[in-house]
Structures are given as C-alpha cells and as structure tokens.
Nucleic acid binder design. Sequence first.
DNA 1: CGGAATGTGTTCGTTTATCGAACACTGTGT
DNA 2: ACACAGTGTTCGATAAACGAACACATTCCG
Lengths: 245, 245
Amino acid sequence: MTTSPSPSPIDASAASGPASQTLSRGIRVLEQLADARRALTIDEIAARLSVHRSVAYRLIRTLEAHGLVERDAAGRLVLGARLAALAAGVARDLHAEALPELTAAANDLGMTCFLVVLDHEECVTLASVEPRHAVAAVAQRPGTRHPVTVGAPGKAILTQVPAGAWPPDAGTGLAGEVHEAAVRGWAESQNEVIPSLHAVAVPLVLRGRAPAALAAVYLPTGTEAASVAERLARSATAIRDALGG
Amino acid sequence: MTTSPSPSPIDASAASGPASQTLSRGIRVLEQLADARRALTIDEIAARLSVHRSVAYRLIRTLEAHGLVERDAAGRLVLGARLAALAAGVARDLHAEALPELTAAANDLGMTCFLVVLDHEECVTLASVEPRHAVAAVAQRPGTRHPVTVGAPGKAILTQVPAGAWPPDAGTGLAGEVHEAAVRGWAESQNEVIPSLHAVAVPLVLRGRAPAALAAVYLPTGTEAASVAERLARSATAIRDALGG
DNA sequence: CGGAATGTGTTCGTTTATCGAACACTGTGT
DNA sequence: ACACAGTGTTCGATAAACGAACACATTCCG
C-alpha cells in the first residue's frame, strides 16, 4: 500500500499531466448547465465550449445515455436527476452522521444549520437543515459554494489549514480573525456571504478527511454568539465521535 | 425553435447513436465510486471498467482536475465535493420551492417527508427533511434510488405515466393499486422500500417536467393515512402554484 | 403562402487524441 | 534485503473522435 505524500488540503486541482480532452469537454458541459441556471440548446453549449456543434452533440448524447443530462419539454438540455444520485456518494458517511445532528441543532437553536467542507479553495455546503419555523429563507442549500476566505465557515475551516497553504487572495485582516477563531474555538461573520445575516461556525476536524465546519445563521438579534457556538460544538463532537476521527 | 416529439416520460436512456467512449468511461468511474461506497484504488477501478490501468489513470487525472474525484488520506479515490455542487443544479427551482414546504410538512406531521422525481425507470429522492424529533432514522436521503414499481412514491408517479409506458417489470397487482391511487389522489405502501414502515405519497404534477411526488414515512401506528395525504397535498399544491405549473 | 432562420440528428473521410505496453519510482510488509 | 502493491510517465500504433456537409422539422417573419 502506498501512502501519498498527502499534500496540503488546498492544492487547486494541480493535476499534473494533460487531461483527457473528450472527458474534460463532457464535464464542462455539465458545468455549463449548472452555471447557466436555465435550459440550454446544443448550439449554446457548443458555443460555450468553443467546440464544433457535432462534438457537443456527441457529448450530450453520451451524457444523456448515462442520465446526467435530460431534456425539458421544449427539447432543451438540463442536468439529469441521476446526477443527484451520483452526488449522494460524496462523503456518504459524514453526511449520514451529520444530518440528524444538524436537524437537532437547527431546532434547538431555531436557526438554519449546515455542514461545510473544503474543496480546493472553496467551501461547499454538503447539507443544510432549516428549523421548524424558518426565520430566514435558506441561502445555504446543499451544493452552494463560496471562497474559503469569506464567511464564518471559511474561517473555521482555515483554522485547520496551515497559513502557508492559504489561497493567495486571503486578505490581511483574515489571519487575525482566523487566529482568534482558533483560540476560542469558533468563528463568526456578519453580512459576508449572506447580507444582513450573522453566522457562527465551529471547526469539524476529522482524521484523514478534508477540513469541515458546522455553521448556523441568524438575524442579528441579541443572540449570544458564544452559546450558538457551544451548541454547534456539541454536534461537532458527536459527529467526530461517530466517525472515529 | 424546435419542439421535440416529447417521448413518454419513461424511455430507458434510449440514446440512439454510439456513445463517446472516453466520456462514457469517465462517467463509469464516477458510477463505480458511488456504487462501491468506499475508497477505491486505481487498479480496482481499472478492473471494474475492464480497461487498462493507464486508461483509468488518465480518466482519474482528468476527473481530479475538475474536482469530481478526490484522494483520501491513503491516496485512494473518492467522489469529490465538487460533484455535490454540480448536483445542486438539478431541478434547482423545484428544489428551492419544495424545501420549505417539506420542512413545514415534516414538522406538522412529525414524519420524514421527501420529494421524489422520476428518472427513466427509477425514483430518485431529490430532497428529504426529518422532523424535529426524528421517529425513525431517515432511509430516504437525497440521491436514494429505487424502481418506480415499488413503494408509495412510485405509485403516485405512475399515476402520471400512461400504462403503456410503464416498465416491463410492473407486477400484475400494480395497475390496480395505481388506479386506486389516481382516483383517491394518494398512494400508500407498507414495508416496500423500507421494512416495517408505512409510506404515503401524493402526485406532484408539473407542466413540462418529469412526474414527481411528495411522500411521508411513519411507523405503522394508528395514524390516518388520509390525513397525512391531505397535508402532503396542501404542500404539493403550494409548490405547483409557485412554479406556475 | 413561402422563404429565411433556428435547431436537431446523421453520415463519412481525415487526423488527432486515445490507447496500452513497458518502464521508473516509492513506500510497505515479510 | 527482497518481493509486493501501488502510483506516475513515456511513446509508437491505431482506433476513436473530430468536424464539415447534408437532410429534416418547426417557428417566425413578410
């Protein structure tokens, strides 16, 4: 068995050699469909990829055969439901352990709670749970991405990343905030990723896994951030124990 | 603008022409990683695809570059977090409208509620919400798949599919159950997809979209299935109105 | 009505990207 | 120290992908 040199958690997709052209183009089709947030025609996709129309056509035919792409009523292309099934395999065990904890925390706190993991230089929300009486529309649905350098979850995650491995766009004030978060065990942010909302996040450190965090968002009332953090930390500990990490 | 002939909702990935080999193999890598439910080595993947090791290596390098595949601490391969971000684009608007409704229904009913859509010949769970005090561990996490011919959500979906387009494996008794569900407006099942649980589902008919359903699961207590169905139907109507379908 | 415009799907010769064997390297276990 | 299991790289042959051109359907105009 080989143990890879285990590079820093942030390594910006530095796959060395050349990528497979056809596969890469196929993935870019999916990326374009996800970005567009609307149904696209084959010609639009071909233009976005800068490839010939017949190339796009063949790629789409293949993606369709695997269920990753479907047609809407007008024959335009959208992402297929099978893609959701594939994505269920991402960090399956973490997801399974975190969901009940998020549900409990969300209802205890009356806040939307979510699980975030580090992906290269971005935070990706893997799961989120709204409380019984949702105070604010959830802006952190699963799959949401934003830079690690922004928001409470990002800071909680950066406490697990050596400063040398931080993304280049890390602001000057960030190091101080992250240090503070590391010392007291939780991070907070105001209006950073979601305008007019506060967020609190605690690091979720798992052995042999990408850095993660649990977070909660709430309207800027008189709520004590520290008590929110404490509740989140309890769930984080439970998850960590369950995963033996 | 072209309007496609709009084939039956179930058409078993009948992409006519030949598929792109490289892209198809790349997707199969993802499928294998999702199926395996554990980290795989390159050799294992090569064996599962029946391709040369160096082919698998190139595919994986490309998938890694796009963030769809990552390495665990031991250097083995797992699905990447970016895949979850991609999947967030699947039926984004439906998902957004359904989540608050599912949350409300789950807490009103005290049951796990979920949204299911038809994908070829299977049901795919797109979203699920556990109530405040989860009575049963959720076995219907997002991404779960099972045949349309099984379970309450499947029957609710089949009420939207002409009988001629049903999958060949549809049992004899099924037509009667689906007819009954169509008449009274909801379907139920016992121990079908989840042992020792009851399920109730209502159809969610959306214009120009794949057939869908809202469902709830509960322990077989004295609960009135009809009242559960009524609550689900209220959410279904709300979602349908919001999407103008 | 008719023609231009937009879009999908198919065919086919060319060539380029992919294939697959062989090799180098590294960490692990015996 | 050795074999082993695994990763990553190179390179010539070839098959798979490319891309131009065509056939067809539908919608939008004058």
